[in-house]
Every structure is written in structure tokens, then in C-alpha cells.
Amino acid sequence: MVIATPRSPRHVDAMSIPVVELSGIHKSFGANAVLRGISLIANEGEVITLIGSSGSGKSTLLRCINLLEVPEQGQVRIGGEDVSLSLPGPHRRPTNETQIRRIRSELGMVFQSFNLWSHMSVLDNVMAAPLRVQGRDAADVRAEAMATLAKVGLAEKAEAWPAELSGGQQQRAAIARALCINPRVMLFDEPTSALDPELQVEVTRVIRLLADEGRTMVLVTHDMGLARAISSRVLFLHQGLIEEEAPPETLFTAPKSARVAQFLKASSGG
């Protein structure tokens, strides 16, 4: 368990430039209404953390940001640009695939189960999107990929296959892969949940480092210590709505909602 160390508040920027704006997001799977009208803003340099019990729709909300899920109602704006979607309804689709791909190439996603491309070396994983999607120069990309791997402490594993790495190393490689596209926002979906406690620490350390650099991030996590340490604001999801949204120092010490209090009690006890 990482002990929360108070850090300078991140939510007092003089100028707030919204990078991710979700408004009125609805999403259901069949009869299961998972998101029922959620709005979220992540400003430049902020770390927004989503917490809530299992099945509350945290992953679904995160996946709406890069359109891995298409919300049937509501609007997604990335860097001030509206994502163009067809008319609201269960069959809503992006109307501009090129726009979707461009926006995705500016959002670095890190998955709970790493999802490294297992047939590529670690270095090729990190270089793939910059080369194949962003079309950048190969020599530049290679140099940047090596620097990024060094940053997450994996320089000597560049030529290894993902299968040869520990879980913690795989997740750090996945973070390097997301970093190397120079994303506007990093999206983390429970990056440490699949890891043993000792391995969680090495990944958490990297995430904290990124937070300290002032990167914009949206993070789903069950690690309350991490949430407390790096968040600008914490959002608690419950039954498809945001039950409470507050800076961590408020939410974790004096939650307004009884449900949040109950959740925090359960997760600190567990």
C-alpha cells in the first residue's frame, strides 16, 4: 500500500484550459443503463480520478473519452474539438472515422490487462503508433521510444518480448507505449489492479512521476492512496451518475455523500 503524501494542490491553476469535456453522457448495454447523464471536465494539467464500486461504469466512462464506447446521448469534446457523432440513439456511430483516429492518436490509454502486442518486442510496441498512426520519422521515434523506456526503467528490456517481462514491467512498457505518442491526455483504467502488491509499487511510482510532470490524466483506480496523492479532483460514480465530485482532501476526509463514506470505509478496511 502506498502511503499518501500530501502534494501541492493541482486544482488552483490560474487559467483552466479544458482538454477533455464530456457532457450529458448516457450509455446502456441492452436494458442495462450504465451511464445516465454524466459530465466531466479535465483541464490542462489536471488529474481526474474516477472511483466507485465494481460495475458502476468507470471503465465505460473512460472508454467514452476515446470513443471505444459510443455514448448514445451526450457530447465528447477533446481539446475543444467536438467529436462528430450521428443522431443520439442506441445505434449512434462516429460520423468521421478519420477524426476518431486522429483524436485517439492523441489519447494514450493504459489498460488493466496491459494489452501489449505480444508478437512485437517492447521497443516495437512503443514505436508502433508513432510510426504507423502518426507517421513520424523512424529515427526520431526510435530515439524517443528509447528515452521513454529509460524513463519507466525499462531501457535494458527494449528488445525483450512482452511474455518475458513481469506484470509490473509489462504495465510500465504499456505506459511507455502510451507516452510515446505525446498524448494530450493519459487514460488509465485500473493500471495496478492486475498486479501483486510489490509490483503495484513500481507502476504507481511511474504514474506519480507523470502526475508530478503536470500531465493531464484521467485515472480509474481502486488504489485510494494513489487517488489521494495525485488527484486534482475525485469523482465517485454510483448507479450511472456522479454521486460526488471533490478535491481529494475533501472527498477522502469529509465526504458529503453517505454512500461515498461507506465505500471509503469498505475499501480502507479491505
Binding site: I100, M109, F111, L116, W117
Partner: peptide, 10 residues
């Protein structure tokens, strides 16, 4: 998951 990652990266 690997296909999904490829989608997520555009």
C-alpha cells in the same frame, strides 16, 4: 485486448 489496444491508439 490487443485488438482493442490497436483501436485505442488510432
Amino acid at each position: 485486448g490487443e485488438i482493442e489496444a490497436a483501436r485505442a491508439f488510432g
